[in-house]
Amino acid sequence: MKVKTPADSYTSMTEIVLPNDTNVYGNLMGGRLMYWMDIAAAIAAQKHCNAPVVTASVDNISFEKSIKLGNTVHIEAKVTRAFNTSMEIHLRVWGEDFTTQFKYKSNEAYYTFVALDPHGRPRQVPQLAPDTDDEKRLYEGALHRRQLRLILGGKMKPGDASELKALFDQEV
């Protein structure tokens, strides 16, 4: 399998916030944004592994700034690390008000996807080789985030999380 870079999976998606996408305060509903983010992340994952994928987990999504009715939503997604059959995808979200020409950060999150074979079972994915310093930082952090996800999902015992333990066992 050919090793890929985060740039190979880069996906950019743009939506406009319409009345049906908002709550009673005129803000984009969080569920609608998560839906759009899931689509962008799935496209990035599929570009990386050239196979169908399913969402395995969504990390904490914190809403830094609401996106208003009529604003544009920009979502960028790319794979930050590939494991055996799963991939972590990092997403960044911006809102943009064209009338004031103001672009602002709204959200950031990590999604995990699993690649599927023709029978719907997990299949191996290509490894990832980060290029930039930011990509390398995200790549290294992915191991910690993965172990935390596994612990929270009940698939790993905290005592087995060697990468996380190493963070706390360092002398200051």
Rank of each mutant, 00 (worst) to 15 (best):
L167H: 08
G120L: 08
P130Y: 00
F102S: 09
E88L: 02
G154L: 07
A109D: 02
P126N: 11
V93G: 05
D160Q: 14
T80Q: 02
L152Q: 12
N107F: 00
K157M: 13
D169I: 06
T99N: 14
I89G: 01
P122E: 12
Y110M: 01
L148S: 09
R81Y: 03
P130C: 11
T85S: 14
E76T: 12
G159V: 13
L150D: 15
N107G: 00
I75R: 00
Y139Q: 01
K103Q: 14
D134M: 12
D97N: 15
T99M: 12
L143V: 14
L128I: 15
P118E: 10
V93F: 02
E163N: 14
K68E: 13
K157F: 10
L152T: 08
I75F: 02
G120P: 09
V79N: 00
D131T: 12
K165E: 15
K105D: 12
V114R: 03
P126D: 14
L164C: 15
P122C: 11
Q101N: 15
E76I: 05
K68Y: 08
A109N: 02
L91K: 00
W94H: 13
E108M: 04
L116R: 06
Y110W: 09
G70M: 06
Q124H: 10
E108D: 10
T100M: 08
L69I: 14
R121I: 07
H119Q: 13
V125P: 00
H90Y: 13
F98E: 13
L152C: 08
R92A: 08
L116F: 07
H90D: 04
V125S: 04
D97I: 02
K78I: 01
R149E: 03
Q101Y: 07
G159T: 10
A82L: 01
S86R: 01
R92I: 05
G120Y: 09
L91M: 05
N107D: 00
H74N: 11
K103W: 03
W94A: 06
S106Q: 00
V93D: 05
Q101S: 15
L138A: 01
P158F: 12
D134L: 14
R146Q: 14
N84L: 09
K105F: 10
E163C: 11
G153V: 03
L69N: 07
I151K: 05
R145A: 03
D97S: 07
Q147C: 11
A166W: 06
R146C: 06
I75T: 05
Y104R: 04
R92M: 08
